[in-house]
Design a protein around this nucleic acid. Structure first.
Length: 955
RNA sequence: GCCCUCGUAGCCCAAUCGGCAGAGGCAGGCGACUUAAAAUCGCCCGAGUGCGGGUUCGAGUCCCGUCGGGGGCACCA
């Protein structure tokens, strides 16, 4: 076979050789090293920053799993590489690299399974990734490829933690400030202490507590998500809506445990409001807004019957307060103990008591059951409302009616005030509960015509049954009623308008080994102290057993236990924190794996810096507001010019990273107030999987396909199999790797194929047999430049034919536009089209071939470099200016004008592009085919869109 | 249940502002080259846009409804 093959054909073997050669060339020359404005790389690689504009782009850095990459993973990486290369050809200084997120649960679990140290497996996995990716020719600045497990990196992760720890959120200033300012505020009395006491009257411990209460990173005992099967607590964001952990699907229980938290809730408003300043997909903005869940309403206090105390509730429907016929507290609510009497009030409905002799027994029993329920179980018995009467009554502040107070787990402690006023007539959940417990309802909004009388009414309407001797809401619409009643409540001291959020503080502790240690030690009194910068990093110690203590997944009463707690020699440490050497105890929890990814984009700008997490000048150069694509944009927050990644990080990583970024901004450490100015979500490459009659997965690449369309039959070893569509993975036996593709076709072909499959943001199925199309394109391009038999240059210096020249400029114009919109698939189509014309004419003028090679360079860089060199250029094509379209050549000499009668095409005429409407109309009126189809019909109207269309309306 | 997306040829996908439904690729067919096959080259084939309404001179595109795929949220008061 190979004897007959032309010697200089662009075969996979030749492609592979070319690719390796250029990859070495780039490596050797530091071609992709980006210069910084200051520091060691102020002059770098091929150039200094000069007065070139900058462009910073990146992928969401990968978490290297043991399985290596399949063809779906590099999709985003290839896309960003195309953009990076395109931007370089536009003359921009481009910051583009790829680091590794490498602390965290999966690495640890994998290490536990294989009995190896997580560092070893993690580093091996990273090596595998680097090897696989190197083969693709990605133009990363490899000097900037940070790894979160590197102590030189996590030193600064820990340092940022201490900065957050040493900060508080000043609501009046609307930003974070150093903790010293808080102490000064407490001292001067301009900031009230939590207890309201004078600073001077507080003991040292009370003062410390007052400061701790305001820190942005704080330790507290609060209900957290405890997953016994995982042996650690997890953040709210890491619990799926089934109430299972995102990693491993373990049940989650609510437990009160002392844990480190991040006060992300202080930033709720800014995290929502600043979404208006970034260029992100609306869907991701919607997800974040929804997650933060800002809702406007009122806090209303219901006095307790026979007591001076009251219960504060949060409601978004204060207008319905006249219909509040009972109240519900969350089972964990602090007031429950104080309000619950010893005995049931006279004539208590037996349905309310849970069968208990007295309220205290009923409440205790209900609380026990509720606390043992995992989130999953709460989901499962969904609509069935449960609860018990506390024995206490409150007073509806507008009706004066006594209303019974219940506890029920459909009210959550973590939201609002953990207490509600229940309005069965206007809330379906309250309706269900009221129905079950025989509680009354009063309609306060007139339901719309035809409303089912046996349900709550949540629609709009006019208020009814809502008046007392001081106020009447009757006849008002809902919005008007809300405003009126809030004003009334405020006037009478019973309530006020307020805003509540679904977002809760970020649970930052993990009882795991494989994470950043906290830079925190405790003194003999148990008070926490931050480790000063000079003693960072706090390195992760070696331990004999790094696996966490896990439990039966259902064992709700188990307690988390950190692996670092076993490193006894490490835990006890003597330090001088400024007041002489003392013995301290280290924090043994570690940070969640999100910590390292909260600020890596900043580190990319100056990764070799040992003095600072990033030089201020570097951060400002690459990420500052009004720079790069933010130039000329009003209110630009700065940040990475383009960030590409999957939508699955919409709340986790992207919310946390924004939060840290804003804290650093507030503290004056950085100039940008958002980390990622523009976000793009790439789609996924999915794959078909096949199962036999027993439901067993069979290898997808051995399945035979016959027939077309709905009649297609799939067989494996002659037996019919069924097809399904889903993720690529080992268990589905449908994995295709980039390594296979590079071996079979070459990296350039693989890159072009991935980019040509469809729009980047859409998911699509992988189809190996279609890859050959991309190979044919590159092969034809090669053949247009180089004689396959002799290896000689085939290009001629003749001027191209006029129509070829025009096509070239249309192509340049279109490709530029497509690259700008990340529409690589249409750009490739245009390049193929131009190349096919060259193939067909059999003659390749240099003035067409060179721009074609240049335009192909971002997509198939190795091939382009090789052809560029063959064309006689010594320099890398990397920085050669991208072709410019000549506007004069974009203007067509003639345009085909469509002549329609009643919207139907009747004729096409060639006209000048500059033809005026009147002239075109006349041409259409006189057109023979038009006259024919018009017959004797009257012309009613003529729509002229010169020069492309005329539509004659007749009747 | 609510929200967001996508439905165009056998398959993957194009179609600026509403203006000729087709740029490109795969598969398929025919031909050239070949002893033959593969590869290569040339030519060809193909849908009225999931379905039903509406707006408009004109709808794949806008609006309403509906069905199907994918994703997010869900006792959040």
């Amino acid at each position: 076979m190979s004897d007959t093959e032309p010697q200089h054909r662009y075969t996979p073997e030749l492609a592979g050789a070319i690719e390796r050669r250029w990859q070495e060339h780039w490596q050797e020359h530091g071609t992709f090293h980006a210069a910084n404005p200051s520091g060691p790389w102020a002059q770098s690689g091929t150039a200094d920053i000069g007065d070139r504009p900058k462009f910073m782009l990146q992928d969401m850095f990968p978490y290297p799993s043991g399985a290596g990459l399949h063809v779906g993973h590099p999709l985003g990486f290839i896309a960003t590489d195309v953009i990076a290369r395109y931007q370089r050809m536009q003359g921009r200084n481009v910051l583009y690299t790829l680091g590794y997120d490498s602390f965290g649960l999966p690495a640890e679990q994998y290490a536990v399974q294989t009995g190896q140290h997580p560092r070893k497996t993690t580093e091996e996995n990273i090596e595998t990734y680097i090897g696989q990716l190197r083969r693709l020719g990605l133009s990363h600045d490899d000097r900037r490829a940070v790894q979160t497990i590197d102590p030189a990196y996590y030193k600064w992760t820990q340092w940022i933690f201490t900065r957050i720890y040493d900060s508080w959120y000043d609501e009046r200033a609307g930003k974070a400030r150093p903790i010293a300012d808080l102490v000064a505020g407490y001292e001067s009395g301009t900031v009230a202490t939590p207890s309201g006491a004078h600073w001077g009257d507080l003991t040292a411990a009370e003062r410390a507590a007052s400061v701790d209460a305001r820190r942005l990173a704080y330790k507290s005992t609060a209900p957290v998500n405890w997953a016994p099967g995982l042996g650690t607590v997890v953040a709210n964001e890491e619990v799926t809506n089934e109430g299972l952990t995102e990693r491993g699907d373990f049940p989650v229980f609510r437990r009160n445990l002392p844990q480190w938290m991040m006060r992300i809730t202080a930033y709720a408003d800014r995290l929502i409001d600043d979404l208006d300043r970034v260029d992100w997909p609306e869907s991701v903005k919607a997800i974040q807004r929804n997650w933060i869940g800002r809702s406007q309403g009122a806090a209303v206090t219901f006095p307790l019957a026979g007591s001076a105390d009251g219960v504060e509730v949060f409601t978004t429907r204060p207008d319905t307060i006249f219909g509040a016929t009972y109240m519900v507290l969350a089972p964990e609510h602090a007031l429950v103990d104080t309000i619950t009497p010893d005995a049931w009030p006279a004539s208590t409905d037996p349905r309310w008591t849970g069968g208990a002799e007295d309220p205290r027994t009923a409440v205790a029993a209900y609380r026990a059951v509720a606390s043992r329920k995992s989130d999953l179980e709460r989901q499962v018995d969904d609509k069935a409302k449960t609860g018990v009467f506390t024995g206490a009554y409150a007073i509806n502040p507008v009706t004066g009616q006594r209303v019974p107070v219940f506890i029920a787990d459909y009210v959550l402690m973590g939201y609002g005030t953990g207490a509600i006023m229940a309005v069965p007539a206007e809330d379906p959940r309250d309706w269900d509960f009221a129905k079950k417990f025989g509680l009354p309802h009063v309609r306060t909004v007139q339901p719309a015509e035809g409303h089912d009388e046996d349900t709550a009414y949540t629609g709009s309407g006019l208020m009814i049954n809502s008046s007392n001797d001081r106020i009447s809401l009757n006849g008002k619409d809902v919005d008007d009623a809300k405003a009126t009643i809030i004003a009334f409540l405020e006037e009478h001291g019973s309530g006020h308008g307020t805003i509540t959020y679904k977002l809760r503080d970020w649970l930052f502790s993990r009882q795991r080994y494989w994470g950043e240690p906290f830079p925190i030690v405790y003194d003999e009194d148990g008070a926490a102290h931050a480790i000063p910068e000079r003693l960072l990093p706090v390195e992760l110690p070696e331990v004999a057993d790094y696996s966490p203590k896990t439990y039966d997944p259902q064992d709700a009463d188990s307690m988390p236990e950190s692996p670092l707690g076993r490193a006894t020699e490490w835990v006890t440490v003597e330090l001088d924190l400024g007041d002489g050497p003392k013995t301290y105890t280290r924090e043994t929890d570690t940070m969640p794996n999100w910590a390292g990814s909260c600020w890596y984009e900043i580190r990319y700008t100056d990764p070799a810096n040992n003095e600072r997490f990033a030089d201020r000048e570097c951060e400002e150069y690459w990420m500052g507001p009004g720079r790069g694509d933010g130039e000329g944009v009003a209110n630009d927050p700065g940040g990475v010019d383009l960030y590409v990644g999957g939508v699955e990080h919409a709340v986790l990583h992207l919310l946390y990273a924004r939060f840290w970024h804003k804290v650093l901004f507030d503290l004056g450490e950085i100039s940008s107030s958002e980390p990622f100015r523009k976000l793009f979500n790439q789609g996924y490459i999915q794959a078909f999987a096949f199962r036999d009659a027993r439901g067993q997965v069979v290898p997808a690449n051995e399945v035979v396909e016959e027939g077309e369309g709905p009649a297609t039959k799939y067989t494996w070893n002659g037996a019919p199999v069924t097809r399904e569509y889903g993720k690529m993975g080992k268990s589905l036996k449908n994995v295709v790797t980039p390594d296979e593709m590079c071996a079979q076709y070459g990296a350039d072909t693989f890159r072009v194929y991935e980019m040509s499959m469809g729009p980047l943001d859409m998911s699509r199925p992988w189809e190996t047999r279609a890859v050959v199309g991309s190979q044919r394109f590159l092969q034809r391009l090669w053949r247009n430049v180089i004689d396959e038999e002799t290896g000689a240059l085939r290009v001629v210096d003749d001027a191209p034919a006029d129509d070829l020249d025009r096509l070239l400029h249309r192509t340049i114009d279109g490709v530029r536009r497509d690259f700008g919109h990340l529409h690589f698939h249409t750009a490739i189509a245009k390049l193929i089209e131009l190349n096919n014309v060259l193939t067909r004419t059999g003659m390749a003028p240099r003035s067409v071939v060179e721009p074609l090679v240049q335009m192909t360079a971002p997509l198939a860089p190795h091939l382009a470099e090789e052809l560029w060199r063959t064309l006689g250029h010594d320099e890398t094509i990397t920085f050669v200016a991208f072709p410019q379209a000549d506007p004069a050549k974009l203007v067509q000499e003639t345009v085909t004008c469509v002549v329609q009668v009643m919207g139907k095409v009747r004729d096409r005429i060639e006209v000048s592009p500059s033809i005026d409407a009147a002239e075109l109309e006349q041409l259409a009126r006189d057109n023979a085919k038009v006259l024919e189809s018009l017959g004797d019909k009257q012309i009613r109207k003529i729509v002229v869109r010169a020069p492309k269309l005329v539509n004659i309306v007749a009747g």
